[in-house]
Amino acid sequence: MTAPPLPIAPDLLPAIRESCIEAGELALALFRPGAKTAAKIWSKTGGSPVTEADIGVDTFLRIRLSVLLPEAAWLSEETVDDALRLSRRFVWVVDPIDGTRAFMSGSPDWAVCVALLDEGRPIAGVVHAPACAATYTALSGGGALLNGAEIKATTRSTIGGAHIAGPKPMLDALARLETFEQAEKIPSLALRLTRIADGTIDAGLVSADARDWDIAAADLILHEAGGRLSTGDGQDVVYNRETPVHGMLVASGAALSTPLLSALQHMRDSQPQRI
Rank of each mutant, 00 (worst) to 15 (best):
I201W: 05
K185T: 00
G142N: 01
I215C: 08
R156P: 04
T158P: 07
E181A: 06
V238G: 12
G234D: 06
R192G: 08
I201K: 09
D214W: 08
S230R: 11
M170E: 12
T179F: 11
I201H: 14
R156W: 04
A216H: 03
G141K: 05
I164R: 07
T154P: 14
I159N: 11
A216V: 08
A173R: 15
S207E: 14
G160T: 14
R228P: 08
A183T: 01
I159K: 12
E224M: 08
A138T: 10
G148M: 07
A183S: 10
Y239C: 10
I221A: 07
G204C: 03
N147L: 01
A144N: 09
Q182K: 15
I164E: 06
G199P: 09
A203H: 04
E224R: 01
T200Y: 07
A133D: 14
E178V: 00
G199W: 08
K168T: 00
L145H: 09
I221C: 05
T137S: 14
M170I: 03
G232D: 14
L191I: 01
K152P: 11
K185A: 05
R211Y: 11
A208W: 15
G141L: 10
P167H: 08
L222Q: 05
A197T: 07
R195W: 09
T155F: 03
G226C: 08
L174D: 02
H223L: 15
A216T: 07
A197M: 04
A144I: 13
P169T: 00
P169W: 07
